Amino acid sequence: MSTPRTLHLGVDLTDGGAHAGGWRAQGPVAPRPFDAARLAGLVATAQQGLLDFVLFDDSFTLRPQRGAALQGRLDAALVSARLAPRSAGIGLVATVDTTHTEPFHVSKAIATIDHVSTGRAAWQLGWSTDAASAAVFGRRPAPDEVDALREAEEAVEVVERLWDSWEDDAEIRDEATHRFVDRDKLHYVDFEGVHFAVKGPSITPRSPQGRPPVVVRAGSPLSLDLAGRRADLVRVQATQRDDARAIREEVRDIARDAGRDPNAVRVLVDLVTVVGQDRRSAQERLDLLEELGGEQGRLPEGSLTHVGTAVDLADLLEDWFDAGAADGFTLRPASLDTDLRAIVNGTVPVLQADGVFRQAYPGTTLRDTLGLPRPASRYAAAQ
């Protein structure tokens, strides 16, 4: 018998929410978007709902909008590292850019989060094509999308080789022989590409997941192709169910053509949510957010959007999931505090009652939650 599909749900905790006015919609409580206790509270709420993961985006520049838009952002990997020992069960997805960050640093940062969280880290692959980000570093001009994605794909290859460079049992800690590691089980990666030449090995022991899942946010044909070849989890945008189903099948076809198992790739649709007690109150909340957001008072364009009740949201999720349009969704609450609580307390119980969402985390790692196998080290397999 085949294992039934399980709906996967993550939540984007970046900034104050998907709406520019979300950070101001805090009622009488003064907004504190960079407060560590607030972030821990949001993760605890998502964990209470047994969501697959929380996600933190990152960037090197301030938002181009002025006025009411939230400005400033904490480092996604460092935030994830802080939250790792203060959470359990839920995955922690950190965005790290590859255009201006060396693969060695990426591999070490994400592997460290995986160790600290005992196997709940993931890396959302980032890249930069804007002149403002390049100017922050001043080392190179901004690449175009083609070059940025080629470099990003090389970076994924290097990072995964570094994650594999320690075999699982390389750390022996043998007091009798005074040996901490078995040097025969540490491997040079010896990668030479167009953008990188990396010898290795990593200085970080192999992490609990072996290779933390790689997440790619695909918003163009080129990035979709990269995602199908390299990602474990693919984030896509679609406003119509049939369009989403076609994108999902395209990702699976790309994965298959690359020699991968398409059933080991999860395709999640981005979904912006504005949840209320009824549809009228949800629309009134959206109207308030647009007023608070000023000139930037609009929901993100191009994403599936739900303005309505928590139960109606559950119906939407199930409909798209059952139709094969998505393996799950990356939820983007318009206002984090309000909409995340509504999802956890109102939407998740409906999905659980309908038997499409879990009653408990299935294991200890994010790969367990996503239903993905733990890969073996390529170097151990080569011996």
Rank of each mutant, 00 (worst) to 15 (best):
T61M: 05
I203M: 14
A109I: 12
A81K: 10
R229Y: 09
A255F: 07
D169Y: 11
A197R: 08
V236H: 03
F60T: 00
R266C: 14
H19R: 07
T204D: 00
G363S: 02
R150V: 00
F60M: 00
H115W: 13
P4H: 01
A18P: 11
T45P: 09
G228T: 08
V43E: 01
T99S: 12
R285L: 08
G17N: 12
V307C: 04
L224K: 12
G363R: 04
L233G: 07
T99K: 03
T3Y: 13
D169M: 13
V189T: 06
T369N: 05
A381Q: 12
G276W: 02
P349V: 04
P375F: 01
D174E: 03
P373Y: 03
R229A: 03
V344W: 13
T177C: 04
D327I: 08
V79E: 07
L286D: 10
V79P: 08
V356G: 02
T99H: 08
F53R: 04
P362N: 08
L370A: 00
V93F: 02
L9F: 11
S220I: 04
F196P: 00
V116P: 06
E157Y: 02
R252E: 10
L289I: 01
A380D: 13
Q352W: 08
R248I: 05
D322Y: 08
G10M: 11
L366P: 04
E145Q: 14
R150Q: 12
D58Q: 06
A76W: 11
G371M: 09
E171W: 14
R150D: 13
V116L: 15
G302K: 07
D164R: 03
G219L: 10
T61Q: 07
S223Y: 07
A381V: 04
Q71L: 13
V348Q: 11
V344H: 13
G276L: 00
F196R: 04
A325K: 00
T45K: 09
L162D: 02
D243E: 14
G363I: 06
E157V: 11
T112L: 07
L331W: 05
D270N: 15
H195N: 04
L336Q: 14
S59W: 10
R358I: 09
R66L: 15
D15S: 13
D339W: 05
E145N: 07
L286F: 09
P64E: 07
N263K: 13
V214P: 00
D354C: 00
A376M: 11
P262Q: 02
D322H: 14
D225E: 15
P4L: 04
T338W: 12
T98N: 05
V189E: 02
D261C: 01
A244C: 11
G49A: 02
A227N: 04
A227Q: 01
T369C: 08
Q283F: 01
I110T: 03
W123P: 09
E290H: 10
A122W: 12
R341E: 15
A36S: 15
R298L: 15
R38K: 09
A84R: 07
R38E: 13
R211P: 05
A37H: 12
W23Y: 05
R260W: 12
V307M: 03
V344P: 06
